[in-house]
Amino acid sequence: MELNNSKIKIQAKNLNVYYGKKQALFNINLDINQKEVTALIGPSGCGKSTFIRCINRMNDVIDICKVEGSVEIDGAEINEKNVDVVTLREKVGMVFQKPNPFPKSIYDNIAYGPIIHGAAENKDQMDNIVETSLKKAALWDEVKDRLNEPGTSLSGGQQQRLCIARALSVNPEVILMDEPCSALDPIATAKIEELIDDLKKSYTIVIVTHSMAQAVRVSQKTGFFHLGKIIEVDSTDKIFKNPANKMTQDYITGRFG
């Protein structure tokens, strides 16, 4: 099968996550393939965001959050003390549910990552990075004449693409997307979906979504979460046409959730 041919990029093993005393994820085992889109679905509060935040260790930011178990990227454990989160996050970019451009110009929004990582040696290189990132995010044509305007002056959909461009600017290998379209209208959503389709040629993408249709449209593999447990993972085709689990069936047909 196609699945077996793909190389595994990220592998979560026996992952448990706690917020204080409350356990949010139970024994998660999940493989994510390289250069493919993996969708995570499940009812609200089931731990999807918590899971993808484990992949770039964003949960470190939350004081009360404790992560146990292992996550490997390219076979290297990331949950160890000596792993450098800064380098990790450079490799694993993230796009959030609500667009969060910095209160800076469009240009500076993109340039921020390369500057802190020292990716550009001079102004020309930086211009180049900004242009390619914006082009990859399909935003260049809309903003090329107004790079000095604040990022917050863009529309919601444009802002979200700006955030995608910002994530691309440091050349990550993995992009995590937490409901990237939930704040957007159908047209902007369509644009972003198109973009995701395009990006999967060079990046490994994990996307959390509440829309079954979106999962079907963009992803090759889907995982279904429920109450902090992973119920079923399989190719998207299989999950939506012929799920093995009754709960998955109920969820995708809209009987609960």
């Binding site: 450098d84 800064v86 990582h117 020292g118």
Partner: peptide
């Protein structure tokens, strides 16, 4: 500056 040196400096 190598990547490691840079990282050290940032830390």
């Amino acid at each position: 500056m190598t990547k490691e040196q840079r990282l050290k400096k940032r830390y």
